[in-house]
Design a protein around this nucleic acid. Structure first.
Length: 232
DNA sequence: GCCAACGTTGGC
DNA sequence: GCCAACGTTGGC
Protein backbone atom coordinates (compact mmCIF):
# COMPACT_ATOMS: atom_id res chain seq x y z
CA UNK A 1 0.00 0.00 0.00
CA UNK A 2 2.36 2.60 -1.01
CA UNK A 3 2.52 4.28 -4.28
CA UNK A 4 5.38 6.54 -4.72
CA UNK A 5 4.93 9.72 -6.54
CA UNK A 6 7.06 12.32 -8.07
CA UNK A 7 10.42 13.09 -6.90
CA UNK A 8 10.53 16.39 -5.16
CA UNK A 9 13.32 15.73 -2.87
CA UNK A 10 15.72 17.86 -1.10
CA UNK A 11 15.69 18.41 2.48
CA UNK A 12 16.02 20.78 5.32
CA UNK A 13 14.28 23.92 5.85
CA UNK A 14 14.22 27.56 5.57
CA UNK A 15 11.90 29.85 3.75
CA UNK A 16 8.47 31.06 4.45
CA UNK A 17 6.29 28.08 4.87
CA UNK A 18 9.12 26.24 6.34
CA UNK A 19 8.34 27.86 9.56
CA UNK A 20 5.58 25.43 10.12
CA UNK A 21 8.08 22.72 9.79
CA UNK A 22 9.41 21.61 13.11
CA UNK A 23 6.44 22.35 15.26
CA UNK A 24 3.89 21.20 12.80
CA UNK A 25 5.30 17.80 12.91
CA UNK A 26 3.99 16.95 16.29
CA UNK A 27 0.66 17.09 14.64
CA UNK A 28 1.37 14.03 12.64
CA UNK A 29 3.40 12.07 15.06
CA UNK A 30 0.22 10.57 16.24
CA UNK A 31 0.19 6.91 16.59
CA UNK A 32 -0.93 6.05 13.17
CA UNK A 33 -4.08 4.19 13.14
CA UNK A 34 -4.87 1.51 10.74
CA UNK A 35 -6.53 3.06 7.80
CA UNK A 36 -9.06 5.60 7.11
CA UNK A 37 -9.21 9.09 8.27
CA UNK A 38 -10.98 9.94 11.39
CA UNK A 39 -9.33 12.70 13.01
CA UNK A 40 -10.66 12.99 16.44
CA UNK A 41 -7.49 11.67 17.82
CA UNK A 42 -7.62 10.27 21.28
CA UNK A 43 -4.69 12.50 21.89
CA UNK A 44 -7.16 15.24 22.14
CA UNK A 45 -4.60 17.79 23.02
CA UNK A 46 -2.97 18.24 19.75
CA UNK A 47 -5.50 20.21 17.87
CA UNK A 48 -5.68 22.70 20.66
CA UNK A 49 -2.05 23.20 21.28
CA UNK A 50 -1.61 23.41 17.60
CA UNK A 51 -4.45 25.69 16.92
CA UNK A 52 -3.23 28.19 19.42
CA UNK A 53 0.33 28.32 18.37
CA UNK A 54 -0.38 28.10 14.71
CA UNK A 55 -3.72 28.86 13.26
CA UNK A 56 -3.69 28.07 9.59
CA UNK A 57 -3.09 31.51 8.24
CA UNK A 58 -3.11 30.68 4.59
CA UNK A 59 -6.21 30.42 2.51
CA UNK A 60 -8.19 27.26 2.70
CA UNK A 61 -8.47 25.17 -0.39
CA UNK A 62 -10.48 22.10 -1.12
CA UNK A 63 -9.18 21.25 -4.57
CA UNK A 64 -5.72 20.12 -5.51
CA UNK A 65 -3.42 19.06 -8.26
CA UNK A 66 -0.84 16.39 -7.58
CA UNK A 67 1.97 15.49 -9.92
CA UNK A 68 3.45 12.12 -10.58
CA UNK A 69 5.48 10.56 -13.31
CA UNK A 70 3.70 7.98 -15.47
CA UNK A 71 6.82 6.93 -17.35
CA UNK A 72 9.69 4.86 -16.08
CA UNK A 73 12.62 6.76 -14.77
CA UNK A 74 15.26 5.29 -12.58
CA UNK A 75 16.41 7.29 -9.62
CA UNK A 76 18.98 5.77 -7.29
CA UNK A 77 18.37 2.46 -8.92
CA UNK A 78 14.66 2.63 -8.33
CA UNK A 79 11.95 3.19 -10.88
CA UNK A 80 9.81 6.10 -9.79
CA UNK A 81 7.07 5.48 -12.33
CA UNK A 82 3.64 6.03 -10.88
CA UNK A 83 0.87 7.06 -13.22
CA UNK A 84 -2.86 7.14 -12.72
CA UNK A 85 -3.13 3.59 -14.02
CA UNK A 86 -0.82 2.49 -11.26
CA UNK A 87 -3.03 4.08 -8.65
CA UNK A 88 -6.06 2.48 -10.21
CA UNK A 89 -4.38 -0.90 -10.08
CA UNK A 90 -3.80 -0.82 -6.33
CA UNK A 91 -6.07 -2.63 -3.90
CA UNK A 92 -9.03 -0.37 -3.30
CA UNK A 93 -7.64 1.82 -6.05
CA UNK A 94 -5.99 3.80 -3.33
CA UNK A 95 -2.64 4.32 -1.74
CA UNK A 96 -0.44 6.81 0.01
CA UNK A 97 1.13 9.75 -1.70
CA UNK A 98 4.60 9.40 -0.32
CA UNK A 99 7.89 10.91 -1.28
CA UNK A 100 7.00 14.57 -1.19
CA UNK A 101 10.13 16.39 -0.04
CA UNK A 102 9.30 20.00 -0.46
CA UNK A 103 7.90 22.06 2.36
CA UNK A 104 5.32 23.95 0.42
CA UNK A 105 3.99 20.79 -1.11
CA UNK A 106 4.00 19.07 2.26
CA UNK A 107 2.14 21.90 3.91
CA UNK A 108 -0.51 21.79 1.26
CA UNK A 109 -0.95 18.10 1.92
CA UNK A 110 -1.39 18.90 5.57
CA UNK A 111 -4.24 21.20 4.60
CA UNK A 112 -6.06 18.44 2.81
CA UNK A 113 -9.24 16.99 4.24
CA UNK A 114 -11.05 13.80 3.54
CA UNK A 115 -13.35 14.16 0.60
CA UNK A 116 -11.27 16.80 -1.13
CA UNK A 117 -10.74 16.22 -4.82
CA UNK A 118 -7.43 16.31 -6.61
CA UNK A 119 -6.36 16.14 -10.22
CA UNK A 120 -3.85 13.46 -11.04
CA UNK A 121 -1.27 15.25 -13.16
CA UNK A 122 1.22 13.40 -15.31
CA UNK A 123 4.58 15.12 -15.31
CA UNK A 124 7.96 14.65 -16.86
CA UNK A 125 6.58 12.61 -19.72
CA UNK A 126 5.72 12.66 -23.39
CA UNK A 127 2.49 14.40 -22.88
CA UNK A 128 2.21 16.19 -19.59
CA UNK A 129 -1.26 17.04 -18.37
CA UNK A 130 -4.24 16.08 -16.27
CA UNK A 131 -5.35 12.49 -16.52
CA UNK A 132 -8.03 12.05 -13.93
CA UNK A 133 -9.52 12.79 -10.57
CA UNK A 134 -8.83 11.29 -7.18
CA UNK A 135 -10.16 11.81 -3.72
CA UNK A 136 -8.31 12.42 -0.50
CA UNK A 137 -9.29 9.52 1.73
CA UNK A 138 -6.92 9.99 4.62
CA UNK A 139 -5.50 13.16 5.99
CA UNK A 140 -1.84 13.86 6.53
CA UNK A 141 0.21 11.42 8.56
CA UNK A 142 3.86 10.47 8.78
CA UNK A 143 5.49 9.45 5.53
CA UNK A 144 7.32 6.30 6.53
CA UNK A 145 9.59 6.36 3.50
CA UNK A 146 11.65 9.15 4.98
CA UNK A 147 13.14 6.62 7.41
CA UNK A 148 13.72 3.88 4.89
CA UNK A 149 17.30 3.86 3.75
CA UNK A 150 16.38 1.89 0.70
CA UNK A 151 13.72 4.31 -0.41
CA UNK A 152 14.47 6.89 -3.07
CA UNK A 153 13.17 9.54 -0.75
CA UNK A 154 15.04 8.52 2.36
CA UNK A 155 15.91 11.58 4.41
CA UNK A 156 18.76 11.06 6.81
CA UNK A 157 18.05 14.36 8.47
CA UNK A 158 14.59 13.36 9.60
CA UNK A 159 14.28 11.62 12.93
CA UNK A 160 11.45 9.34 13.99
CA UNK A 161 10.80 11.39 17.09
CA UNK A 162 10.31 14.45 14.93
CA UNK A 163 9.42 13.45 11.40
CA UNK A 164 9.66 16.05 8.71
CA UNK A 165 7.52 14.64 5.99
CA UNK A 166 3.87 13.80 5.70
CA UNK A 167 1.68 12.07 3.19
CA UNK A 168 -2.00 11.58 2.54
CA UNK A 169 -3.94 8.67 1.14
CA UNK A 170 -5.68 9.12 -2.16
CA UNK A 171 -8.19 7.05 -4.04
CA UNK A 172 -8.70 6.89 -7.76
CA UNK A 173 -12.02 8.36 -8.71
CA UNK A 174 -12.19 8.50 -12.45
CA UNK A 175 -10.35 9.32 -15.63
CA UNK A 176 -11.24 12.56 -17.32
CA UNK A 177 -13.31 11.99 -20.44
CA UNK A 178 -10.31 13.18 -22.29
CA UNK A 179 -6.76 13.85 -21.23
CA UNK A 180 -6.20 17.58 -20.74
CA UNK A 181 -2.70 18.37 -21.92
CA UNK A 182 -0.55 20.99 -20.31
CA UNK A 183 -0.29 22.74 -23.65
CA UNK A 184 -4.01 23.33 -23.69
CA UNK A 185 -4.09 24.53 -20.11
CA UNK A 186 -1.30 26.88 -20.98
CA UNK A 187 -3.29 28.39 -23.82
CA UNK A 188 -6.12 29.13 -21.46
CA UNK A 189 -3.72 30.44 -18.91
CA UNK A 190 -2.22 32.89 -21.38
CA UNK A 191 -5.60 33.89 -22.66
CA UNK A 192 -6.91 34.43 -19.16
CA UNK A 193 -3.82 36.31 -18.11
CA UNK A 194 -4.40 38.74 -20.93
CA UNK A 195 -8.14 39.13 -20.79
CA UNK A 196 -9.14 37.73 -17.48
CA UNK A 197 -10.48 34.30 -16.72
CA UNK A 198 -10.31 31.52 -14.17
CA UNK A 199 -6.89 30.16 -15.06
CA UNK A 200 -4.96 33.38 -14.94
CA UNK A 201 -3.33 32.56 -11.61
CA UNK A 202 -3.25 28.80 -11.87
CA UNK A 203 -0.40 27.44 -9.77
CA UNK A 204 0.64 25.08 -12.52
CA UNK A 205 2.03 28.15 -14.27
CA UNK A 206 2.72 30.58 -11.50
CA UNK A 207 4.44 28.00 -9.28
CA UNK A 208 5.39 25.50 -11.88
CA UNK A 209 7.64 23.29 -9.87
CA UNK A 210 5.37 22.62 -6.96
CA UNK A 211 4.37 18.99 -7.00
CA UNK A 212 1.31 19.44 -4.82
CA UNK A 213 -0.65 22.53 -5.57
CA UNK A 214 -3.95 24.10 -4.61
CA UNK A 215 -6.69 25.04 -7.03
CA UNK A 216 -9.52 27.41 -6.41
CA UNK A 217 -12.96 25.95 -7.04
CA UNK A 218 -13.20 28.17 -10.08
CA UNK A 219 -10.01 26.74 -11.49
CA UNK A 220 -11.06 23.22 -10.71
CA UNK A 221 -14.47 23.62 -12.27
CA UNK A 222 -13.12 25.28 -15.34
CA UNK A 223 -10.64 22.49 -15.94
CA UNK A 224 -13.26 19.83 -15.32
CA UNK A 225 -15.49 21.47 -17.89
CA UNK A 226 -12.81 21.11 -20.49
CA UNK A 227 -13.31 17.38 -20.64
CA UNK A 228 -16.61 17.96 -22.38
CA UNK A 229 -15.23 20.49 -24.79
CA UNK A 230 -13.19 20.30 -27.92
CA UNK A 231 -9.53 20.68 -27.35
CA UNK A 232 -8.02 23.92 -28.48
C1' DG B 1 20.03 36.84 7.94
C1' DC B 2 22.16 37.66 3.32
C1' DC B 3 23.25 35.66 -0.80
C1' DA B 4 26.14 32.81 -4.04
C1' DA B 5 26.62 28.24 -5.23
C1' DC B 6 24.40 24.23 -5.88
C1' DG B 7 20.77 20.84 -6.86
C1' DT B 8 16.23 19.67 -8.60
C1' DT B 9 12.10 20.08 -11.40
C1' DG B 10 10.08 19.34 -15.44
C1' DG B 11 8.86 21.34 -20.07
C1' DC B 12 10.61 21.28 -24.42
C1' DG C 1 19.58 16.02 -23.23
C1' DC C 2 19.29 20.96 -22.45
C1' DC C 3 18.51 24.42 -19.49
C1' DA C 4 15.55 28.10 -17.06
C1' DA C 5 13.39 28.67 -12.90
C1' DC C 6 13.66 28.34 -8.37
C1' DG C 7 14.17 26.02 -3.75
C1' DT C 8 17.90 24.75 -0.49
C1' DT C 9 22.38 24.97 1.62
C1' DG C 10 25.89 26.86 4.13
C1' DG C 11 29.66 30.30 4.61
C1' DC C 12 30.17 34.56 6.31
Amino acid sequence: MAPKRTRASTRAAKSYDTASNSDDNSDEVVVRKPVRGKRTAPASDRSETKAKTEPPSRPLYSHWLMKSEPESRVENGIDVKFGIEDLKALPNQSGCWDGVRNYQARNFMRDMKEGHLAFFYHSNCKEPGIAGVMEIVKEAYVDHTQFDKKDVHFDASSKPDNPKWSMVDVQYQRMLQRFIPLSELKKYHLQHSAKGGPLKNMALFTRARLSVQPLTSEEFDFVLDLENKESI
